[in-house]
Design a protein around this nucleic acid. Structure first.
Lengths: 343, 343
DNA sequence: TTGTAGGCGTTATCAA
DNA sequence: TTGATAACGCCTACAA
């Protein structure tokens, strides 16, 4: 009658515990989960047997029965970009604290792969999907959402983005005022390509707007195919040494900063004497660089834990604790890479 | 008879597809999985219905039946350390390519948490557990291993570590010879604390041994509680400006480099004139730093993909393709932060 | 070539 | 307070 049992894999199951404890599987389940009645005697016997056998309830069986996988999916636009690491870490820590486990999926900057990854996460029946950045195919995502996938988009309208939006705009304003105070009137805002995600678009707009407000001309610069320090350096030199020279460079992404810095070295541009430098995103390296880099930083880790904790409260039916407002603070940190503009 | 169906969650299941396609669930399963017979007609109808309904087989159900979760666990000693990112990425990519999904668990440098995480991964019934670094509690791990958890330890005796071991030792030798050639006879090897993991221990020993071989005195320096650039700077200054001065600093971990560099700036130590600098681990920032940092680098990403691909071949019963030897190459990359020792 | 049916490990209902 | 039992969604041996 046992039709092809896919071979006993040596895992201790609830029946083994039940047998060892001299009770039924139902009692084991109740005793261990804490839900339902169980006499102290039963509890003790079950706990002992369970520990002795090293029993760990199999998640697949449990999930099947409860329709909860105790799993959170995390879709990362591109794991090659280290900015997502603090976010991943934050999600993992919050999940860990509440008994959840995190499944990471890297979209590798590909729409096709993103869709494939979304399908897989959906197939895993993750209890929720957290987006580490803007998805490439919103329509596809919405379809899965309608199919029952719970999605948390920190940048989206349902996220706590209002706070973030205002604070990043605020920090950008500080940055621009700082530059204006130091006499800068023409700057370059450098990005790899046209801004894709919401964050990037808002950031770009914030820079443009803030600059206009303080009377700075902000020139958007797209790196495009230029990936070599020499190429980029030539371009920067053109900007910095033109008749209407740019006196500061704002780097739109932390991961872009090393390239830009190498480019400056290659072109022999001195920071900050010849040109000031600011980048979005902070790190130990940015602080260790000489001159120390001025940055606009936000605490992505705190942000991720806050979002995830909130999410889990929802999943578990608890009261969502008030989100830590500090989690969304964005600030401009002036350091040595910004100086008075040459006149 | 339906005793508490945990509420229909709106997920399309195999029966929905069967009904829509006018066939049985068995046929749906066969048609979609490709295993077993199914007429072309049936295949078409099933495919159509499946696509139309957006059917994705639920992993928990499938896992329960097949005892394969199509899931790989990744235990990271500490996600705060960016060195693990390329490794994570490599595992994820290899997994992705073969239909697996990755569950990350961060041990946060805590033995207690590590155990908790291991339990969770085991409970998830991951098909295999990959270690991104040395585990803190080997005994605990072994217990789970005996309980049926498949563990891949890249540093362990069953891993492809022989190659790695020899090549990292080789690169370390190159480094030391390079230093000796430039007239260095006293160097400091800086680590946060006493080496814990196997990698760290072997590295430490390799540095000591290689130095001895080429006639360099290698002084092990443990940072301990010193975390502030000023404190560390004082210590470095003491070393560099003593009567028997150290003329080069070898940094034992990439994540330690920014602190050391800030310390040098704080102490006014000029690199490389007054003191040369080398670090283990490469990054864009190391190359962008001025002077560009000499490093010992290895391709952790390639390493991770190779290991994972091999693992999956094993899991899937394929022939393990020959491991790409380049995946384990470790090399010394001299750049500008190393110069002739002052005499 | 297809359908029927049993069971993977777990939990929740219901009867005892 | 406990135990027998029926599902959860899926896959596959077997019968048709």
């Amino acid at each position: 009658m046992n039709r092809e049992p896919p071979k006993r894999q040596g895992h201790v199951d609830i029946r083994d515990v039940a047998r060892a404890a001299g009770v039924s599987t139902a009692t084991v389940s109740r005793a261990l989960s804490g839900r339902g009645y169980a006499s102290d005697d039963a509890r003790r016997k079950v706990a002992a047997a369970s520990r002795r056998l090293g029993y760990q309830p199999a998640a697949p069986g449990r999930s099947l029965r409860t329709t909860r996988s105790m799993t959170i999916g995390l879709l990362v636009p591109d794991l090659a970009d280290p900015v997502y690491l603090p976010f991943l870490r934050g999600v993992e820590h919050a999940a860990q604290q509440h008994g959840y486990v995190v499944v990471v999926a890297d979209a590798r900057s590909s729409t096709t792969l993103e869709r494939r990854q979304l399908d897989r996460l959906y197939a895993q029946r993750v209890d929720a999907l957290v987006l580490a950045g803007s998805p490439r195919d919103r329509a596809y995502l919405r379809r899965l959402q309608r199919a029952g996938l719970m999605v948390v988009d920190p940048e989206g309208p349902n996220g706590p983005s209002d706070i973030r939006r205002t604070t990043e705009a605020h920090a950008t304003t500080s940055l621009c005022e700082h530059l204006a105070d130091l006499g800068h009137s023409r700057i370059a805002y450098v990005t790899r390509g046209a801004p894709r995600g919401r964050t990037a678009q808002r950031r770009s707009r914030a820079v443009i707007d803030s600059c206009r407000k303080v009377g700075i001309a902000a020139k958007p610069v797209l790196l495009g195919a230029r990936r070599e320090p020499d190429d980029v350096g030539d371009m920067l030199a053109g900007l910095v040494r033109s008749r209407k020279p740019v006196t500061a460079v704002v780097c739109g992404a932390h991961s872009l900063a090393p390239l830009l810095l190498r480019a400056k070295s290659a072109a022999g541009i001195h920071v900050p004497d010849e040109c000031s430098f600011v980048t979005y995103g902070d790190s130990d390296w940015a602080a260790a660089y000489r001159p120390a880099l001025s940055v606009v930083r936000r605490d992505l880790y705190a942000r991720a834990t806050a979002i995830t904790t909130h999410l889990i409260a929802q999943l578990d039916g608890h009261d969502p604790h008030v989100t830590d407002p500090d989690a969304h603070r964005v600030e401009f940190v002036p350091r040595d890479s910004v100086a008075r503009a040459r006149s």
